[in-house]
Simulated scan of single mutants.
Amino acid sequence: MLHALKELFDNLTAAEPELPPAQQVQLATAVLLVEVMRADAGKTPAERQAVLAQLQQRFALQGPALAQLVAQAEQSAEQAYDYHRFTASINDHCSQPEKLQIVESMWQVAYADAQLGAHEHQVISKIADLLYVTHGEYIGAKMRAKEAAGLV
Rank of each mutant, 00 (worst) to 15 (best):
M1I: 04
H3R: 12
H3I: 09
A4C: 01
L5I: 07
K6E: 11
K6S: 08
F9M: 06
F9E: 06
N11E: 10
N11T: 00
L12R: 05
A14Y: 00
A14S: 07
A15Q: 13
E16T: 15
P17Y: 03
L19I: 12
P20R: 10
P21D: 09
P21V: 12
A22I: 04
A22K: 01
Q23L: 12
Q23T: 13
Q24I: 05
Q24H: 00
L27Q: 08
T29L: 01
T29I: 07
T29K: 12
V31M: 09
V31L: 02
L33Q: 05
L33I: 05
V34H: 01
V34A: 15
E35G: 05
E35A: 05
V36L: 00
A39P: 01
A39C: 09
A39D: 00
D40V: 14
A41F: 11
A41G: 09
K43Y: 02
T44S: 15
P45W: 11
P45F: 13
A46Q: 15
E47Y: 06
Q49Y: 03
A50I: 13
A53F: 08
Q54E: 14
Q56V: 10
Q57H: 13
R58M: 08
R58P: 04
F59Q: 11
F59S: 10
A60S: 12
L61Y: 09
P64F: 07
P64R: 08
L66N: 05
A67T: 12
A67G: 07
L69M: 02
V70H: 05
A71D: 11
A71M: 07
Q72R: 15
A73Y: 10
Q75V: 15
S76I: 02
E78M: 01
A80N: 08
Y81W: 11
D82I: 08
Y83P: 07
Y83L: 09
Y83V: 14
H84K: 09
H84G: 01
F86I: 06
A88M: 11
S89N: 15
N91Q: 15
N91Y: 02
D92E: 12
H93R: 02
H93P: 10
S95T: 15
S95W: 07
S95Y: 11
S95R: 14
P97F: 14
P97N: 14
E98G: 09
E98I: 01
E98N: 01
I102E: 01
S105Y: 06
S105D: 04
M106S: 14
W107N: 13
Q108A: 12
V109M: 05
A110D: 07
A110V: 08
A110C: 05
Y111T: 04
A112D: 02
A112R: 09
D113L: 04
A114T: 13
A114F: 11
A114S: 13
Q115Y: 08
L116H: 03
A118Q: 10
A118I: 13
A118R: 10
H119Q: 08
Q122C: 00
Q122M: 05
Q122G: 06
Q122S: 10
S125R: 14
K126C: 02
I127C: 00
A128L: 09
L131K: 00
V133G: 10
V133M: 14
V133N: 06
T134W: 04
H135R: 09
H135A: 12
H135P: 00
G136P: 00
I139A: 04
I139M: 02
G140Q: 14
G140Y: 02
K142F: 06
K142M: 15
K142T: 04
K142P: 06
M143P: 00
E147A: 14
A148K: 15
G150V: 14
G150N: 09
